[in-house]
Design a protein around this nucleic acid. Structure first.
Lengths: 235, 235
DNA sequence: GCAAAAGTGTTCGGGCTACACCCATGA
DNA sequence: TCATGGGTGTAGCCCGAACACTTTTGC
């Protein structure tokens, strides 16, 4: 069936994944110390090549699940990078994806096998090729998305406290937020279930646990309201 | 130099362009009636294959300028489409781009040669493959962008009237806007130069012409303000 | 009893929304 | 003189920003 385009060049197509995690203090990325050429020994984003019967999205899902053991997590296409010389080995068009995972959920053995490590976004090692460009784009998009869509919860445990949620937003925006206003806004959207349990691991008093409720979020949308978090400067 | 990835499959990579224009009443797309297989006789987005020495962006620029004669116009990558079966002829990864052009500027002869036509976005013909999906994504992004970035001006002549600008936004959002509020908001950002000339083509009184001033826009950003247009429902 | 984190309410101001009338001019 | 489209001002309200003290409990 390649009669139509037989005179055109074929190219290598890859997928690379920017995988975010949050460990209660800071945002981290899951990076690989490459043990293969090109750029052996340097750090890179986890990536791979789509198989014959795989679409781009499926390839990214596979890369993610082979590395972390996780499926059905937040995964969104970021951007296609196609400069001729972006990979010094050979021309490769790379489609970057962005994933948000709960950092306590991943498969530690798989990650170790693959020579992958969590590195804080504020202190990244040198990355191969244009992978830093991808990471920066992913950061910008995360900042935009987190303001207008309820995706922050993808980075938190199913049950989380209000201070945890706030600290996540502070890590994403690198800004201190006012806890009264933050809490008020989150609760005003009526999309969180307040549980009876408390998490006492970070304070003597203990903090109530909440759970994101997707049904309530749908109701919010159906009522014509939108998710927004205010991230204006405090001070 | 293909020693590194020699065991991986190569694939066809294409670029397709969603090209928007605005003719004072409605948004339009520049579409091609295909005269080649596959899907001969159907409508499609203008597209092509990157040459050996061309990045994706350059390929999209070339496709756009070969069709319209235009260079240095608004052109932004939209999304990469990589489902295995999206093109029935052969597997093709297509990277879609979105362009905004001033509809009076394009090269009519080139467009005619290429069998391209402007079609209103509200009355599109059937498109090949997943091109409608691309168009819908482009529309959604245009709606988002036009609210928060001064890109509407890319679709208007250099000099335009306030009613023209408003009618553009009404076409993008398919909503009537209040002209007092719209005008107030636009002028409050202090990024438009009001000219002494009037355009008398649509009314006896004539409407003042304005010009977008990029320097003033930069100043707006430098002062910590952002471009926004209010597109809330009028009734 | 004290240190450390959780929790909670009010006031102020800016900006968005709604809304109606006069102006200029060509026919 | 009239019909058509261009142009302008104001009042109310909502939401976001700023801000400080009390509660709980483990040590």
């Amino acid at each position: 069936m390649d009669r139509y385009y037989s005179h055109e060049d074929r190219q290598l197509v890859a997928v690379d994944c920017v995988i975010f995690g949050f460990d209660d203090q800071e945002l981290k990325l899951l990076l690989i110390k490459r043990n293969m050429e090109p750029a052996k020994g340097l750090w890179s984003l986890p990536g791979g090549f789509p198989k014959k019967d795989e679409g781009l999205d499926q390839a990214a899902e596979r890369v993610l699940s082979q590395l972390t053991g996780l499926k059905n997590v937040y995964l969104e296409q970021l951007y296609a990078y196609g400069d001729v010389d972006r990979d010094p080995g050979e021309r490769v068009v790379s489609v970057a994806y962005c994933s948000l995972i709960k950092i306590e959920d991943y498969d530690k053995d798989l990650v170790k096998e693959n020579n992958a490590h969590w590195r804080p976004v504020n202190d990244l090692p040198d990355l191969v090729f244009d992978h830093l460009v991808m990471v920066e784009k992913a950061m910008r998009r995360l900042r935009r998305r987190a303001r207008t869509q309820p995706i922050g919860f993808e980075l938190l445990p199913e049950k989380f406290t209000m201070p945890q949620l706030q600290s996540l937003y502070e890590a994403i925006y690198q800004k201190e937020l006012d806890k009264r206003n933050f809490c008020k806004k989150m609760l005003s959207m009526r999309m969180l279930d307040k549980l009876d349990e408390k998490d006492k691991s970070t304070s003597k008093k203990g903090a109530f646990l909440y759970r994101f409720n997707p049904e309530k979020y749908e109701q919010l949308l159906a009522d014509g309201f939108y998710f927004t978090v205010d991230v204006k400067t405090k001070k």
